[in-house]
Amino acid sequence: MSALSFFKDALYADAYALKKGFLQSRDPRINVAAILLLIIAVLFVRDTAVLVWLYTFCLLLAACSKINLLFFIKRTWFFIPLFSLFIAVPAVFNFVTPGHPVFMFTLLHHPVTITREGLSGATLFVMRVATSVSLVILLSLTTKHTELLKVLRILKIPQLFVMTLGMCYRYIYLFVEIIEHTHLAIKSRAGTNIKHKKGREIATWSITNLWIRSYHLNNQVYSAMLSRGYRGEPQVLHEFKTTLRDWAWITAAAAISTLSFAVY
């Protein structure tokens, strides 16, 4: 269960959304639109330098939103971009991307060359992935999840999906707690030196147990929904307000995206 602590950190990183930073003070609808514009720009850009600028802009936004930059960089690079870096490594060699040699060495008695084209392609690929992932995580860190769901509803995403998304998010908290307790109980009884066959049995037994327990929650959850006034359409209490600063922010995001498109 090595991923558990990472998942827990990510799930409980909600505290950043409560800070009074730049993005937290903006209208969530504007934030979603602006970040989406920037992500689309990142998707179209073909120049690594422009991607580096967009990534720097993302870091600047994170700093202005009172997010610890070390935490942000660790959080964004830990998983997908690092994995992409690993994937991109073979592409720098001449047997995948032929081109002008930059560096040559011998590997198992075979000459291997790193090419300029390979390096440039791999850098473009990793920077694109890192910038996109950073922008998505920036949005999720600075926007309360309830507000994000409300924005999805405003974007005309069907109610069935939005409601399921909201409930799913709450269930994940509960499930993570159940798994953590089960894992701790197993560890305290059986220790950590478990053979892979037994480990497989324990993992699948935990999954089955989780399904049985969660299925039996279904009736209780529905009764709780009814008692709180659920009639098929979720009600949201607060309305969003757009200020002049929100318009300035979306204009800036649109301008940056347009400039990136111009380079494309």
Binding site: M1, S2, L4, T164, C168, I179, I194, A203, I207
Partner: peptide, 19 residues
């Protein structure tokens, strides 16, 4: 709520690292 349970269940299954 079963749909949400199914979604959360699928999400959490991906957390189980099977040896």
């Amino acid at each position: 709520p079963l749909l949400a349970i199914g979604a959360a269940f699928s999400f959490v299954i991906m957390m189980f690292n099977v040896p």
